[in-house]
């Protein structure tokens, strides 16, 4: 079913030159997003989830960051080989991105109407007046009350939730096929977060767009995504349909994450106990040791884990969906190493 893949990342490696040395922020990541579906990318800070997104968008900081190998096929075209000019034409029209902190991603000296209208004047070559007209419609679409007033306001006049709606309106202006959302609700309060997540689900239903949802929040992933890729230290360590992972996490890191979050109500069903900790900290990515990068923190690590990096093993479960796990413990349960990660 090649036709339904909107995005296919294969063995992507993205490096950064730093004064301390070369950092492989993303190291051999493969992900697939099918059209109309949502892929959740879960991980902690520094795991490479945002760098993966920036690689897709062609927004890596230059000159330190570069894609050193791999391919990113978006609608059949390899973005790695496209010129900056072609990427610029795709950004904002075919694919769009929203960021965690809406205040720093909006331009403080333009009204929100002007900023949204820009998408129409640049990509659809509409005159400015018509662009503003369309901006008003887009604001209405993202649930902003009295849009005819709001388009004349500046970002600082709006609340955090409103600003994130403006960001979504800008991203949705040209009806992109793919929306990359990098921690879109992390800076917001829970009641506002619920509104923004609902809005994204509604827009996806209306437009049929695909979403790459980058977050550190297991709850957001459970609610938003069809498939889930868990990243650790620049690699995908587990990927499967979201319910498969929540029912039977295959990687010790995923399991550790699930056990370590305090969930409302759990202490009453199973008695108050200390949270399960993942000991230690995320390793530095300069000169990483051989073997599995999670091994120093893993309570189930054995000799081989410290010597050899495990491939992504493919566990076939009853439903037939693929379940990739990068762990030597999964070897005995897998038929053969998976060739592809993050399939949705």
């Amino acid at each position: 079913m090649n036709s339904s893949k909107i995005l296919e990342i294969t063995e992507l490696t993205t490096c950064f030159d730093t004064p301390e040395g070369l950092v492989r922020a993303v190291d051999g990541v493969s992900l697939v997003i099918e059209s109309g579906r949502t892929l959740g990318v879960l991980g902690e800070s520094g795991c490479g989830k945002s760098v993966t997104a920036l690689s897709v968008m062609g927004l890596l900081p230059k000159p330190q960051g570069r894609i050193s190998s791999g391919s990113i096929y978006f609608q059949g075209k390899d973005l790695v080989r496209k010129s900056p000019r072609t990427l610029r034409a795709l950004r904002g029209s075919e694919m769009a991105m929203i960021f965690q902190e809406p205040m720093t991603s909006l331009n403080p000296v333009y009204t929100v109407g002007e900023q949204i209208a820009e998408a129409f004047t640049i990509h659809e070559h509409l005159p400015k007046k018509l662009g503003l007209q369309k901006a008003r419609e887009t604001l209405f679409q993202v649930g902003i009350p009295s849009p005819e007033q709001r388009i004349h306001e500046y970002p600082h006049q709006l609340s955090g939730g409103m600003r994130q709606r403006i960001m979504i309106a800008m991203a949705m202006a040209c009806r992109p096929k793919l929306l990359i959302a990098d921690e879109p609700s992390t800076a917001l309060d829970v009641t506002i977060q619920a509104q923004i997540l609902d809005l994204m689900l509604n827009l996806q239903e209306e437009t049929g767009m695909s979403i790459m949802m980058i977050t550190h929040d297991l709850g957001v992933v459970a609610e938003m995504s069809d498939h889930l890729a868990v990243m650790y230290a620049g690699k995908v360590v587990e990927c499967a349909p979201v319910d498969v992972i929540f029912n039977a996490p295959g990687h010790p890191y995923t399991l550790g994450l699930m056990r370590s979050i305090p969930r409302p109500g759990r202490k009453f069903s199973s008695g108050k106990q200390a949270l399960a900790e993942i000991p230690g900290i995320v390793p530095g990515l300069i000169d990483p040791p051989p073997g599995c990068l999670f091994a120093p923190r893993c309570d189930r690590a054995f000799e081989r884990c410290r010597l050899e990096m495990p491939p992504l093993f493919n566990l076939k479960d009853q439903s037939g969906s693929s379940h990739g796990v990068r762990c030597w413990l999964a070897e005995s349960m897998a038929q053969q190493p998976a060739t592809q990660g993050g399939r949705t």
């Binding site: 009641t191 689900l201 709850g219 459970a222 609610e223 979201v242």
Partner: peptide, 12 residues
């Protein structure tokens, strides 16, 4: 109710 629940079957 606004807190997203980290468990299976919560989708959409």
């Amino acid at each position: 109710s606004a807190v997203p629940k980290a468990e299976a079957g919560q989708r959409r």
